[in-house]
Amino acid sequence: MRGKLGLVIGLGVGYVLGTRAGRERYEQIKDKAEEVWELPVVQKQVAKAKDLAKSSALAVPRAAWNGAIKVVKAATTPGTPGQRLDAALDETGDAAGDVKKAADEQKKAAR
C-alpha cells in the first residue's frame, strides 16, 4: 500500500516539476490535486492514518516503560535477594514479550 502510494505521489511530483507546459498547466494540476485531496474518501483515509499514528506511535515506548516499572517493583519486593532476583528476571521476560508484541502490532498496523 505504501509503495503504491509513494509511486503515485512520486509520479505526480515528477510530472509537476518536470512539465514544460508552463504556469497555467501547473495551476491546473495543482487545482486538481487539491480537489482530490479534499474528497471525503481521501480525508477519511487521512483521518485513519492520523488515528493510527496517534494510537501506535507510543505503543512500544509505553510497553518498555511499563515493563521497566514492573521489573523495579519485582526487584524491590520483600524476600531474599535470590527471590527478588528471580522475580525481576521473570518480569524482565514478560516485559520483553510485551515490547515485542507492541512492536509487532505496530508493524502490522503500519502495513
Rank of each mutant, 00 (worst) to 15 (best):
A109C: 04
L7I: 10
L52D: 05
R2S: 08
A21C: 07
K54M: 08
K48W: 04
E91A: 11
G79N: 05
R62L: 14
A103K: 12
E27G: 01
V99P: 05
G82H: 01
A110C: 08
L5A: 14
Y26N: 05
W65S: 14
Q28W: 02
L17Q: 10
D86N: 00
G6M: 14
K101V: 08
E38I: 01
G79V: 10
R62W: 06
G82Q: 05
V71C: 03
T76M: 12
A47Q: 11
Q83K: 04
G6L: 15
L39E: 14
Q106P: 03
M1G: 14
A64H: 07
R23Q: 11
P40L: 02
A53K: 11
A87R: 01
K73W: 07
E105N: 12
V71D: 01
W65P: 02
R111G: 15
V46C: 00
M1F: 09
Q106R: 13
P40T: 06
G3Y: 08
L52M: 12
T76S: 13
S56D: 11
I69E: 13
A57T: 10
K54R: 14
G79P: 09
A102F: 03
P78F: 07
G67M: 10
Q106K: 13
D104N: 10
D104G: 04
V60A: 04
W37L: 15
R84T: 01
E91V: 03
A49P: 00
D104R: 13
W37P: 03
V72M: 03
K4G: 10
A103E: 09
A68Q: 11
A49T: 09
P61E: 09
Q43R: 09
T80D: 05
T77C: 03
D104A: 12
V8F: 11
K32R: 13
A49W: 05
R20S: 13
T80W: 01
R25Y: 09
G18C: 08
A68P: 06
A59G: 06
Q106C: 09
K101D: 09
